[in-house]
Simulated scan of single mutants.
Amino acid sequence: MATTSSTRVAILTFDGFNELDSFIALGLINRLRAEGWSAEITSPSAQVTSMNGVTVTAQQPLEFANEADAVIFGSGIYTRAIAENSALLDRLQIDPLRQLIGGQCSGTLLMARLGLLGTMPACTDLTTKPWLVEAGVLVLDEPFHARGPVATSGGCMSSVYLAAWLMARKAGTEAAEKALHYVAPVGQKQAYVEQVMGVVKPFLSTPA
């Protein structure tokens, strides 16, 4: 169900993060600022450095994820170690009963460790797949999958699907399509929007 109230989105971003995961979602979701949306880089430390050496300042501390309306688990090269860091994960109290939750590539491993996937099958990248299988998760050969308030995506560029799903769930398909249209390549805008929304629309029937 669409809503016009403010929506705060925590994009969980750890050291070694994949820039495409965090920044694409950040840029797309913040296209809805006029509608009261705000997506912010949320990290366990004041600064984090990406897998390619880009250092950014966190906009919110890790605990912001516990109160945000939606949470995106980004991926990175150190995710497996983070998944074994119980002291770090204990700082997260994510609740699918009141939040929309998405995971990108290895971010889905963190979701599994936190018990957020349940029996839901998940999408992820090829590197993370065996780790998820080891954790007892059925891994799909698909770019995007969602069940209720929880979604996963696999492959760096599938971050677009995750952002589009989140926007459509909370702000409606028209708002999501408008944001996608703005960033889509010139001369391909309509086809791009249709392609992205064609992937996520089958998963929008369950109310948030």
Score class of each variant (00 low, 15 high):
77 I>S: 15
116 L>W: 14
165 W>D: 02
39 A>I: 13
4 T>R: 09
173 T>R: 15
8 R>P: 02
201 K>I: 00
17 F>R: 12
121 P>T: 08
178 K>M: 04
120 M>N: 07
31 R>H: 09
1 M>W: 03
107 G>I: 00
45 S>G: 09
37 W>D: 05
71 V>L: 10
50 S>A: 09
114 L>T: 08
124 T>G: 04
24 I>N: 05
139 V>Y: 12
63 E>K: 14
50 S>L: 05
185 P>F: 07
92 L>A: 07
166 L>P: 07
123 C>G: 06
202 P>W: 05
149 P>T: 12
93 Q>K: 15
16 G>D: 08
24 I>M: 11
118 G>Q: 13
119 T>G: 03
90 D>Y: 02
78 Y>P: 04
99 Q>E: 12
77 I>P: 04
160 V>G: 02
173 T>Q: 15
163 A>V: 00
174 E>W: 04
93 Q>T: 13
179 A>M: 07
103 G>F: 01
18 N>H: 06
10 A>H: 03
196 V>C: 13
85 N>I: 00
122 A>W: 13
166 L>F: 02
134 E>F: 04
116 L>K: 11
206 T>Y: 13
174 E>A: 12
74 G>W: 00
63 E>F: 11
45 S>K: 15
173 T>P: 11
75 S>T: 11
40 E>A: 11
203 F>W: 13
48 V>A: 08
17 F>T: 10
143 P>Q: 09
85 N>C: 03
18 N>P: 03
67 E>P: 05
89 L>K: 14
182 Y>V: 11
70 A>W: 04
169 R>A: 01
185 P>E: 09
1 M>V: 04
71 V>N: 13
44 P>K: 01
159 S>H: 05
133 V>P: 02
138 L>G: 01
110 L>D: 12
153 S>C: 02
131 W>D: 14
179 A>L: 07
10 A>E: 07
21 D>L: 00
79 T>A: 09
94 I>F: 12
190 Q>I: 10
121 P>M: 11
15 D>C: 03
94 I>S: 12
21 D>I: 00
73 F>Q: 08
125 D>G: 12
2 A>C: 05
94 I>P: 13
118 G>S: 07
185 P>S: 05
207 P>D: 04
181 H>C: 07
189 K>A: 11
129 K>G: 02
44 P>F: 00
109 L>M: 15
85 N>Q: 14
84 E>Q: 09
185 P>L: 04
136 G>A: 10
118 G>V: 01
46 A>I: 01
78 Y>Q: 14
53 G>H: 05
101 I>L: 06
9 V>A: 08
89 L>S: 12
3 T>C: 08
175 A>G: 08
38 S>F: 12
36 G>A: 03
181 H>T: 06
41 I>W: 06
114 L>E: 14
43 S>M: 05
65 A>Q: 10
16 G>C: 07
163 A>T: 01
100 L>P: 07
18 N>T: 09
123 C>W: 03
154 G>L: 01
55 T>P: 09
76 G>A: 06
